[in-house]
Structures are given as C-alpha cells and as structure tokens.
Design a protein around this nucleic acid. Structure first.
Lengths: 226, 226
DNA sequence: GCGACTTTGTGCGCGTATTCACAAAGGCTT
DNA sequence: AAGCCTTTGTGAATACGCGCACAAAGTCGC
C-alpha cells in the first residue's frame, strides 16, 4: 500500500512526542485519511491494535517498517548530477530511512570528479561495474529527458529492478521492473488546472452547463484560434 | 484530469519530431496508458480527432494547454531555499511551461541575499507583501517539516489557493485550497516495498498462501521480536 | 466481578475509474 | 462514386476503492 509510508511518518512524529498508544481516529487525522481506511490498511497488514484502546505506537512502527522492508538497508545510485541530482544527494530524508546513496554518476566530464555531499561523482561509463560491486538495488534517474531511457535500459540490464525517475519521459521497462515517476512540472500543471477552474476558465464545466456558453462541443470549436 | 499533462508532454515530443497527426493508439503508447482511456479523456475535453485518421498534434496541444490553463502565465514563489529549493529554482521545466518563479524566500539570514539562478533570496518576513505585489498564485513549500504548516497558513491567509508541498508533513488547509505533495523518501519506500516482495519478504502474501507459513495472522505475530 | 464505554475489524453498498467491444464516421483507393 | 479500411467515440460490463455503520471485543471504573 502506498499509504504505509505516510502512516509511518505520522507514527514517528507521535513517537518523538512520547506517545505510546494511538487510536485509529487520531492516527488517521495525523495522516490525513479516513479512519476506516486506516484500520482496513492495518488489518490487511496483519497487525492489530487492542479494542477499546488503540494501537501501540512502537509495535506499529516496527510492523510497518518491516512490511516496507525498512529493517534492511537499500543501496541507491543517483544517475545524473545536475540541479536535481545534487539536491537528492544532499537530501537527508534518504539516509534516515534506510536508503544509502552508494554512488553519484554523470556523463559530463566537467562534473565527474566533483565532490557533492561528501561523495565523488563518478563516470557513468562505470555504471554496470558499480551497480554490481556495491549491490545497488534502486536507481534514481535524474538525467535530462533525452538520456533517461538509455540509462534506464542499462541499469535494468545490470539487474536493477526498481527505478525512481525524475526525468520527464515515460520509461519503458520489461515486466518485473518497477518504475516510479516524480515530475515536478506535472504537479504544477495539475495545480494550474484546478486554479483555473476556480477562476472559471475553459475547464469550468459548471459554467458551461449553466448556459454561459452554448451547449455541446461548439464551445471548444469556436474558441480555437490557430 | 491528472493525465492531461502526460499527454501534453508526449505531444510535445511528437511535435519536435515533426509528426502532424497521431492515432489514439500511438499517443496512448507514448503516454503509457490504455487507448480507450485516452480517447475518453480527450472526448471529455470536447476536442475531437478525425475518424480514420487520428488527432492533429498541433490542435491537440493547443486544446490541452488551454484546458490546463497553460496559455496564461502562473506566478510561483518558492519558500525555503535549501538543497531542494535551490534545485527547484534552477529547474528549467518550470519556465518552459508557463510557470514564472517570482520569488525565493527563506528564514535563514545567511541565505537571504544570496543569488540563486539569477534571483536574490528574500526574507520570509516579507512573504505577504511579495505575494500581493507580484500576484503569486502558487506557493511551493520546500522548508523543513517543522516550518511547513506555519508557512502554509501564511500563504493561504495571503490569498494563495494552490500549494505544492515538498516538506514531509501533511498540511491542513481550509476548503477551496488545493495542496499537492511530493515526498521523495515516500517514493523510495514504495519501491523498497515492491523490491522486498519480489525477494519474498514479509509482504509476500503468495508465499503465505502457498503454505510457507501457517495460515492466519500467526505468521506476523510469531515474527514480532521487540 | 460486572456493566458501561471505547475502539477495532469488517460486511455491505455506492460511486468512480477502467476496459472491452462495436457501431458510426470519415478518408482513400480504384 | 462506391466500397473498403482505419480510427474515433461511446455504451455496457467490470473492477476497484472508499466510507458508512455495526457487531465483536476488550478495558476501565465502580
């Protein structure tokens, strides 16, 4: 479940405050979800709370960490050390959650050799070698769009089956390989879409339905001005 | 729809290649979705293609851009100029899609005044002032977790109704305000979860069902070792 | 020790998203 | 001009996720 990490974070916050026990209602509020959904998620996970009391925070933290595989360390390589790659290399949230960055790679000779966040950037030519040597199991792709698919093919060929992609392209991978994508400009575009609807833009179907424009698709056709 | 930006990107790629016309099948493949879904999305949008031919790329680009509100410029402020804020400030994908970064703000006096990506970092004390003066409509929060909710409250009070949150907390906002969240470590945790399942970890329900462990919840209970 | 109260775990119904499959529609070839 | 072929647009079936609401279960107070 994609919500487990959110629960885990909320639980960590509670733990820091010294809270020992939490009800589904409280935890759901902290995680921003419905309490029934949370209980269902936790029950699918097999762990249980105590009726009339709630869940023991420490127990739940352990259970979820274990379910997510955070009881072991994951070795990550960051490929592409531009703006974003640099930020990722310096991002503290990785190390604190069991993700160890074991390599920074780039194709640009002027970047290779630089020291970033305590690591030396290495040449991407050694990609396969480094993946094997260091047991990299997750590849983070932060290259320009044009290079992403090629890099992806290489890491997959080298045996990596989990890829986090920041490049603005749809990566194609064989079955059995998981790709997650983070696209910053898409997030902004979605916000812009909603913002526009609030302001009654072209996406404002309600305005359409209430007669501010002729019914049917003519509304759109008329608006085109190429 | 959250898929429109993905279609738009695929269309831009096609446009660069000089493709004038595209079928739903081709575009769906490029965007990584089912072709029926793509056609339904596009039809909800009102635009149409030509049966027997497909969609005109240029026309579709215009239509989707317009639907997403990308025909106008959106003014963005980035709050929190740490690792991530810096990367965002220098990220080219914003400007090229109609998002204009109009301000970098931070609370740290040692950062205020620095020049990043051609902009001078300003003191967060002037937040409300700058939002009003420059017509900021989207706030990007890249502060530490502890500061995020406070910053969010301030930008919302200042009239911003769209927030992109990179801080690892669940922001609470009044109705009518849209928040989108990007959490890098959550993405990695989800990958780790799947990776572990491939390897037959605790989340491996198939192994459970095939008898590698006793049925029922006992499997989990026995494994606990606090 | 018992009763009232709290909270979990889950069966059920509902609305939405997704996919299949096909009829309508337009172009292209002959 | 007519028929064939391609591709859209969409009706219908399905799958999925979500949340309500309630019974079972366990605790706490008296």
């Amino acid at each position: 479940m994609a919500r487990l990490p959110v629960y885990l974070r909320a639980l960590h916050t509670l733990q820091e405050r010294g809270v020992a026990t939490v009800s589904s209602e409280e935890l759901a509020a902290a995680a921003g979800v419905n309490s029934a959904k949370l209980r269902k998620d936790l029950s699918h996970l097999g762990s249980y709370g105590t009726r009339g009391v709630g869940y023991e925070v420490e127990y739940l933290v352990y259970q979820i960490s274990r379910e997510l595989g955070l009881t072991q360390d994951w070795v990550v390589a960051i490929i592409g050390v531009g703006n974003l790659g640099r930020a990722l290399a310096g991002y503290g949230g990785f190390a604190s959650r069991g993700f160890r960055v074991a390599g920074l790679l780039d194709a640009d000779e002027s970047i290779v050799g630089q020291e970033i966040a305590g690591m030396t950037v290495e040449n991407i030519g050694r990609l396969e070698e480094l993946i094997a040597e260091r047991g990299v199991s997750i590849a983070v792709i932060a290259t320009p769009a044009a290079a992403a698919q090629g890099v992806c093919d290489r890491v997959v060929a080298a045996g990596v089956t989990s890829v986090l992609n920041f490049a603005p392209v749809v990566l194609s991978v064989p079955d059995g390989v998981d790709v997650r994508k983070v696209d910053l400009s898409i997030e902004l575009q979605i916000l812009a879409f909603h913002e526009q609807r609030k302001a009654g833009g072209p996406g404002d179907y309600d305005a359409l339905a209430t007669g501010e424009a002729p019914p049917g698709t003519a509304h759109y056709v008329e608006a085109v001005d190429l």
